[in-house]
Computed example of a mutant assay.
Amino acid sequence: MPHRTRIKICGLTREADVEHAAAAGADAVGFVLYAASPRAVTPQRAGALARRLPPFVTPVLLFVNATAAEVDAALQAVPHAVLQFHGDETPAQCAALAQGRAWLRAARVPLGAGAAGFDLLEYAQRFAAATALVVDAQVPGYGGGGHAFDWNALPWSHPRLHAAARVVLSGGLTPANVTDGVRLVRPWGVDVSSGVEAAKGVKDAALVSAFIAAVRRADAELAAPPFVTAP
């Protein structure tokens, strides 16, 4: 069966954006539970937004160095959510905070030449208990900065990576570059925030639709049989 890249639209703050992302074909939407973020929402707001989702579209709650009480409050508001840890949490802390639920771990890759020094294989093995590894750019504010790291610097096809983790490509993705990202990385999923925004926390419906369409084009291209010229 051809691979279908999963799509997460993150940093949602408005009902209209939640509804459009779901209608356009997103598999998941993310709510930022980190007060310092310009896209932050409260647990109560995340719960109200999540209730606008249809069945089979997954709410994801993003935390940065949150306390157990903060995670518990968010889970009471969105009890069926997947958790995403984007701070300095250890594998043991992620597992404890998730309380048996599915969780994602962000790997923050340095920009520029620093990407080559990031040991993605070791990171994936450390966080092998995660449902997926969100490979993002290391920017101030823990994501959403609109910067892409050097995709060519990491060993995407290494068998140890595939054995340890499902990879979600993130960081600086846009409708213009996500097709190339899917072709190169062959990720399990992609995660976008600033690349589909009109302003921080305000999604542009046309960009969301264009992003999802670009991912599906990449999937179709990868699924197509190679063209062979006649001898």
Rank of each mutant, 00 (worst) to 15 (best):
19 E>T: 07
121 L>A: 08
17 D>G: 02
33 L>V: 14
62 L>G: 01
53 L>N: 04
15 E>N: 00
71 V>T: 13
19 E>L: 05
72 D>S: 14
130 A>Y: 05
50 A>K: 00
74 A>T: 07
66 A>G: 03
31 F>P: 01
117 G>S: 10
47 G>I: 03
86 H>T: 11
33 L>W: 12
14 R>F: 06
81 A>M: 10
104 L>M: 13
8 K>N: 02
5 T>G: 11
101 R>W: 15
73 A>K: 00
87 G>A: 02
94 C>W: 15
60 V>L: 13
100 G>K: 04
16 A>G: 08
126 R>M: 14
85 F>E: 01
125 Q>I: 03
20 H>L: 12
132 A>Y: 02
62 L>W: 01
83 L>Y: 02
50 A>I: 00
28 A>K: 02
124 A>K: 05
57 V>H: 07
98 A>R: 03
6 R>S: 15
108 R>H: 15
29 V>Y: 01
88 D>N: 14
68 A>R: 10
5 T>D: 09
50 A>P: 00
81 A>Q: 09
95 A>E: 14
15 E>H: 01
55 P>G: 05
104 L>G: 11
64 V>H: 05
113 A>P: 14
119 D>K: 09
4 R>M: 11
113 A>D: 15
107 A>I: 09
117 G>Q: 11
14 R>D: 05
55 P>L: 12
51 R>L: 03
69 A>N: 13
48 A>M: 11
100 G>F: 08
129 A>N: 03
3 H>Q: 14
77 A>L: 06
2 P>S: 13
122 E>H: 07
77 A>G: 08
102 A>H: 03
55 P>K: 04
72 D>W: 04
123 Y>Q: 12
102 A>D: 11
10 C>Y: 00
126 R>G: 14
122 E>V: 05
16 A>W: 05
28 A>P: 00
100 G>W: 07
56 F>W: 06
94 C>N: 14
2 P>R: 09
128 A>D: 12
11 G>A: 10
115 A>D: 07
27 D>R: 00
49 L>R: 08
15 E>D: 06
69 A>T: 14
66 A>I: 02
27 D>I: 02
71 V>I: 07
45 R>S: 10
77 A>E: 11
89 E>H: 07
80 H>C: 10
32 V>P: 03
26 A>S: 12
68 A>M: 04
55 P>C: 09
19 E>Y: 00
78 V>N: 04
121 L>D: 13
97 L>P: 04
31 F>M: 00
60 V>I: 15
63 F>S: 02
44 Q>V: 15
115 A>E: 10
108 R>C: 05
